[in-house]
Amino acid sequence: MQQNIIHLVDISKDYNGTEALKNINLYIRKNEFVTLLGPSGCGKTTTLRIIGGFEEPTSGDLLFNGVKINDLPPYKRRVNTVFQKYALFPHLNVFENVAFGLKIKKIDKKSIAKKVRTILSMVNLAGYEQREIGSLSGGQQQRVAIARALVNEPEVLLLDEPLGALDLKLRQEMQIELKNMQQRLGITFVYVTHDQEEALSMSDTVVVMKEGTIQQIGTPIDIYNEPKNAFVADFIGESNIIDGVMLRDYLVEFAGLQFNCVDHGFAEKEPVDVVVRPEDIQVVAEEESALKGEVKTVTFKGVHYEMLVDSTTFRWKIHSTVMAPVGAKVGLKILPDAIHIMKKVATTK
């Protein structure tokens, strides 16, 4: 049985009136790769800063290996951070930046040099030891920041959008490299991103946040296939979200039509959000489906086409490898298991 290394119990954070976090409950197991995912301003950085010790929760407890550490100063925590804005020391070169934590721990010079060299080659920066920070590109600085934190082999590594400044290719390389390092070194990662693809591909557990609350916690597959509400569904991958009414178990009405579905357990005539993934809608001949529409735009997206199709009440987003031309009248087919029914949530907005 794995133990919880970090446990956030009912944590709230209030910045003179702005509620950045509202009653967050989250536990993180040892060696887990947990990703906090959510739109800008939802409280991801605040959560990390509380774990790192730079912010005290207004209420609630933070447990580390079962011990409350609410007011333990950052330098006493066995946690390191890769900051969103790198926060590299401008008066030190790359080597000295990476060696900063090791020097404080009074490790002997030879092993410092060795560790720094190893970690720098891991982040593809071998040979950059003597470079000044100001002379590095954004992506290089970001990798120095990763190296500077990782070289200390903390029990928990907090990463605040650590790959934000990298181009797609380097980003994908670094995703794999980070995941490898996490598994090899056995470090618990708490990773912040607003890139859902990154979250899904790297994490053991994804925590979806919105306006200071946790919307859903689950494995990437759970989160993608069983989003708890329309917000999660929309944030994790693209979705068509349309108002509907649950007529009875396994039957839902939306877009003026009735559809069979696999969901049940709702009240009769309960208003719901109906979520359909763009790739789950099939474009067929007009007479083959009761749901009809006209193709408005077609965009080539590399692997698939994205089409926007207007039906009488709704504009559908459809991903398909076959294309229907703009202006074509088509039928849209949605199978029962592609229809996800979600309870309406009262939003604060």
Partner: peptide
């Protein structure tokens, strides 16, 4: 944030 980074590193 530089001060925080230093604290973070011990």
């Amino acid at each position: 944030s530089l001060i925080e980074a230093a604290e973070d590193l011990g």
